[in-house]
Amino acid sequence: MAGVAHIPQPDAASRLLAAQAERARQRRRTRLFLLAPGLGIIGIFGLFPLSIALVYSFLEPGTYGGVEWTFSYDAYVQFLFERDIFDDTLTFNSAYLQIFGRSFGLAITTMIGTLILGFPVAYFIAARPQEQRNFWLFAITLPFWTNLLIRTYSMLLIVRDEGFVNLTLMNIGLISEPIEMLYTDGAVLAGLVYSYLPFMILPIYASLEKFDFSLLEAGHDLYATRTQVFRHIIIPITRPGIAAGCVLVLIPALGAYITPELLGGGKKLMIGNLIALQFGSGRNWPFGAAAALILMAVVLIALLVSLRAGASKEGGHG
């Protein structure tokens, strides 16, 4: 550049600038054109309805479903208290708290269960030679895409009284009466773990995918025991994967509808069923909307916590 004797005339320079500005404008226009449909449809029909739900949660239920446009925070009061129809007094009612409690209990147990089952699998796959990994990844991903309803139904075929497990055990003669498994918390838990296990395996695998296993050898050479190698090398490496997996399992498990519906027999309600019920035969849309928003708030908190847990990887083990 320095060797160029010719210095552009002022008008040439400004024309260059104008051309650049024009190009930048055009790029912005193209970008806007490309983004508009996606952001538009998800913004209007994905994000905006959440604020409608927020509005609904502060209205009164309509007699035949829907809402009456009268302000009321009854939907939130209803969580903890029952309003007497005759004298309008409030008495403490823990029924809904219990449903929330059961949902959290089940979702967190599911998370731990999938971690215990999923971690070894993720590690095992990452330690395979490349050509075997593809088979395993395919095998783990496939159930994830298979219809959740059908998978839950197949679980039901296995655990019901006259199901596969019971009849097989009875045929061998291990038991004489079927063990009641269906419609228990255990069945729901098994169904949830079964449904969401791939969500745990895949992110942990992703965090181990590029891992150099000779580091383990290095640790071992430095007289680290097996446990130490595990704690100080493998856990820090997989930490973002574990955090992502926990969230990916926790979110759908908390909002599960099909699993408790089929395997819990609609008696062992979880939040998901409670919400759907209010929009169906319960005919209390505001209460359903309030329950959904509380669920979403919890999910957002879980997301933030996991972001921090995943990010603090660098800090801990310096």
Partner: peptide, 16 residues
């Protein structure tokens, strides 16, 4: 849509 439990999306969409 991936970040929100499906049941929440479902009722919000129904309401809207």
């Amino acid at each position: 849509p991936l970040m929100i439990p499906e049941i929440v999306t479902a009722i919000a969409t129904l309401a809207f």
